[in-house]
Design a protein around this nucleic acid. Structure first.
Length: 802
RNA sequence: GCGGGUAUGGUGGAAUUGGCAGACACGCAAGAUUUAGGAUCUUGUGCCUCACAGCGUGCAGGUUCGACCCCUGUUACCCGCACCA
């Protein structure tokens, strides 16, 4: 037998799969469907990374198995191609970003195809294709029309060297990710999407989803729901200063207040404040600091007292001072807090530094040492009508009091902020709005979609931080669709997250020009049955797309409340040294090299075998040989084939057990142990010196989802008929998984002393009797008192002696 | 600081969820075959032992006939968030 020529064989089958379109999802909506999805890649210039195939292979195995099980499977692929690296490459090399994208996509596609993934390439999509982003823009317009898109002045990150606005993700440790220059705050007008309006539903609906727990937890924490109360303090100016607190029970202990440096009352009170110079200096200082600096100085509290104005604690009438400090954020709650130094760590630090008195209102700690923040054990003291209550009782009592006396109310707050949706960049979807002096912001007619990106002379961001589209006056100047008067187009573009927020819907019906997808296609395919992707997208892409999907559900475009029924996440593939793979560390493994040297099947098997799918795993170029040997040993079974349709008696139980194991493991994302089971079965077969045709046939089917090329070739060479992709997944019989006789262990006081071969259905009494009859056991219990005897079915006998 | 997670042979990792710890694979050792081998095959391989026995899942306790698994405490590392009142 010749050695296995993977290079020829793999190319041959890849070509045939493409030509016959075997992996195209069927248009027959009466079949049971299975939609499995992996995150579509950003086609970077570096090409595919060995991390990509881990996710793609895992769901390819699922997709291939589901097809064999009779499902109509949709396993699509596409390109999330808008984005900064492409734009920067285009700027540097004076090539149009669309051209760069085209080249990168071609490279990626070739790499993906060399790995033999069963993607339905007839449904390939690209977020930069105007036919695609027409619908991204359409969704934005619906959001705008429902009042969920709004423009707001806000502080953004501004790179002093690139002279451009950066997304939060592009600011790393306070400096620009690209050039390492200082990033400062700059106030600009930005489009925002009201994701906060969906905060509660985004939390509640997680309950019904089959997402792995850490994804659910991370989303819940990110959305950050808290319940507390808003309390109105009245300032000596007569103004009501409202605060948000989760500890209204400690109201009697509020000995001062803090407002954020940006709080509007400061300007309002300007003529009453005696130390306005000092206050302005502090404000200027806070303004100049980036978010990073503001949070970095975390340890040392700073602030200035507002002299000339005080506030009254509504529950006891005490006059208390007001401070400004940057530890209070404008963007959360009301931008003002009541400070209870005895029971809040931050307030405690601030009060110690500024010599503000503390009042203990919850007994149980030592407030001289540190703030006592425990809610579970304390008892209320020094708190008027709350005294003697537990913290939980006090919370309820004070809320009732606040509402009855019209001094506050119960309130829920979220950490989640609205989504900053503008980018001053070229390579993104144009925002389809115009600004008219008379009518304000107006949507362009849907008939004018897609609003295509114009050709520009330069993709460089401009000096003043405006989009590269801004100087394109021909394009910018237009007429108002509303009044026909002169108007200007929005020149900001959408962020990279826009196109990926709904792409899974487009796959259902990717060539539809009349809708983002047909109703029938959406009814049939939605929701995605299984979505796998990286943990790093949990609080961005995954949350954004759930938000868009819920909105589309609300306006009747999609039939399901949630986009994804199940979400799993793969661990990273690390470099050989156990560190994250990166160019700068020099530990990057190129998948092309692996495919060249070992073949796609080996690469696929190795990535699945490397370890627990959910955990990070270091690449090991020595271990991969084991998978190559497995492929070759499987191929070489041809040398020992004998006639016979079924399983030989000695192997029957092993076959049934292995089929069961592989079937269940694939569904549970445990390909590593599925492969181990197949390796073990192969070893067992090899020990017999032969394999029947029937056994080889089953083995080939089992291995096919993991190693599609070599199995297809064996199927063909052995003349099993047709192609593997048209076959049925092998069945197992639970009864036949059981061996007739099994080995159990006999223990004395929990320590193994002997092994017994017994009939599988042996009863307790008999097993214990057999154990006692064993020479070693008899010796061990001789002269001792038997305290207890037990038999664990199919496992062991344990005799406890004294 | 808060939240989530991890710790098992020389290495990657298994362990039916409380029941033989180390499946499967890499590596290593010995042997076979080969002109040769970074190819293939066979055998062995947790530690300590000639052997019986003993010891062993980060560390210290506990519960149990029995603990990698449950409980208490503790250490180290990884990931996410980070003054969210």
């Amino acid at each position: 037998m010749m050695g296995y020529d993977f290079k020829t064989v793999e190319k041959k089958w890849q070509k045939q799969w493409e030509e016959t379109g075997v992996f195209h999802a069927k248009q027959d909506f009466t079949l049971p469907k299975f939609y499995c999805l992996v995150e579509f890649p950003y086609p970077s210039g570096q090409g595919l990374h060995v991390g990509h195939p881990r996710s793609y292979t895992a769901l390819d195995v699922v997709a291939r198995k589901k097809r064999l099980e009779g499902y109509n499977v949709l396993y699509p692929m596409g390109w999330d191609a808008f984005g900064l690296p492409t734009e920067n490459f285009a700027i540097k090399n004076h090539i149009h970003p669309a051209e760069v994208t085209k080249q990168n996509v071609a490279h990626f596609k070739e790499q993906l195809q060399s790995l033999g993934f069963s993607f339905d390439w007839s449904r390939e999509i690209n977020t930069t294709d105007p036919k695609y982003y027409k619908w991204t823009q359409w969704i934005f317009l619906q959001l705008f029309k429902k009042g969920l898109a709004y423009k707001k002045e806000m502080a953004v990150n501004w790179c002093t060297s690139c002279k451009c606005v950066l997304a939060n993700e592009e600011v790393v440790n306070g400096v620009c990710e690209r050039c390492g220059s200082e990033v400062v705050r700059k106030v600009k007008s930005q489009w925002m999407l009201k994701i906060t309006e969906y905060a509660q539903r985004l939390i509640d609906d997680l309950d019904d989803l089959e997402f792995i727990d850490r994804v659910k937890t991370q989303q819940r924490n990110w959305i950050g729901r808290s319940t507390g109360a808003e309390v109105d303090f009245v300032a000596t100016t007569g103004d009501v200063l409202t605060v948000y607190t989760t500890r209204p029970d400690t109201l009697f202990g509020a000995t001062y207040m803090v407002v954020s440096p940006e709080h509007p009352y400061i300007e309002k009170w300007a003529d009453k404040l005696e130390n306005m110079d000092e206050i302005r200096a502090y404000q200027a200082e806070a303004m100049r600091k980036s978010d990073f600096e503001r949070t970095e100085v975390n340890k040392d509290k700073t602030g200035v007292m507002l002299k000339g104005v005080k506030a009254v604690n509504p529950v006891n009438g005490n006059e208390i001072p007001i401070f400004i400090s940057d530890y209070v954020l404008v963007s959360y709650g009301t931008g003002a807090i009541m400070a209870v130094p005895a029971h809040d760590t931050r307030d405690w630090e601030f009060a110690k530094k500024f010599g503000i008195p503390m009042v203990e209102v919850v007994k149980g700690g030592n407030i001289e040492e540190e703030a006592f923040t425990d809610c579970a054990t304390g008892v209320m003291v020094n708190s008027g009508f709350l005294t003697g209550m537990s913290v939980e009782e006090a919370k309820e009592a004070i809320k009732t009091w606040l509402e009855e006396n019209n001094k506050g109310k119960t309130k829920v707050n979220f950490k989640l902020r609205d989504w900053v949706f503008s980018r001053q960049r070229y390579w993104g979807e144009p925002i389809p709005l115009v600004n008219c002096e008379k009518c304000g912001w107006v949507a362009i007619p849907e008939s004018e979609l897609p609003l295509e990106l114009p050709e520009v002379d330069s993709y460089e961001p401009t000096e003043n931080g405006e989009s590269p589209l801004a100087p394109m006056t021909d394009w910018v100047n237009t007429t108002c669709p509303c009044c026909g008067g002169p108007a200007k187009r929005e020149t900001d573009t959408m962020p990279q997250w826009a196109g990926s927020s709904w792409y899974f819907l487009r796959y259902c019906d990717p060539h539809n020009d009349d809708a983002l997808a047909s109703k029938e296609a959406l009814e049939y395919w939605a929701p995605v049955d299984w979505y796998n992707g990286g943990m790093e997208h949990t609080t961005l892409h995954l949350l954004y797309s759930r938000f868009w999907h819920k909105f589309l559900y609300d306006i009747g475009v999609v039939p399901s409340k949630e986009p994804y029924a199940k979400r799993t996440s793969h661990g990273m593939i690390l470099g050989e040294n156990g560190e994250k793979m990166s160019k700068s560390r020099g530990n990057v493994v190129n998948p092309d090299d692996i495919v060249n040297e070992y073949g796609a099947d080996t690469m696929r098997l190795y990535e699945m075998f490397i370890g627990d799918f959910e955990k990070a795993a270091p690449w090991n170029s020595a271990s991969i040989k084991g998978c190559r040997r497995f492929v070759e040993r499987f191929w070489n079974l041809q040398d020992i084939v004998v006639d016979g349709d079924g399983y030989r008696e000695s192997l029957e139980a092993s076959f049934h057990k292995t089929i069961k194991k592989v079937t269940e493991d694939v569904d549970n994302l445990k390909a590593n142990t599925a492969i181990a089971a197949m390796m073990a079965l192969l070893n067992e077969i090899a020990d017999t010196g032969s394999i029947t045709k029937g056994e080889y046939r089953t083995f080939t089917l089992l291995l096919n989802p993991f190693a599609p090329h070599v199995t297809e070739e064996v199927w063909s060479v052995m003349g099993f008929g047709g192609v593997v992709t048209d076959q049925k997944w092998p069945a197992y019989d639970e009864e036949k998984c059981k061996e007739n006789s099994i080995e159990i262990v006999a223990q004395i006081n929990g320590k193994v002393r002997a092994k017994l071969v017994v009939s599988a259905d042996i009863e307790s009494d008999e097993a214990i009797a057999m154990a006692k009859a064993d020479e070693k056991i008899a010796e061990a219990i001789d002269g001792k008192t038997i305290v207890k005897e037990l038999y664990v079915k199919g496992r062991l006998v344990n005799i406890v002696v004294r």
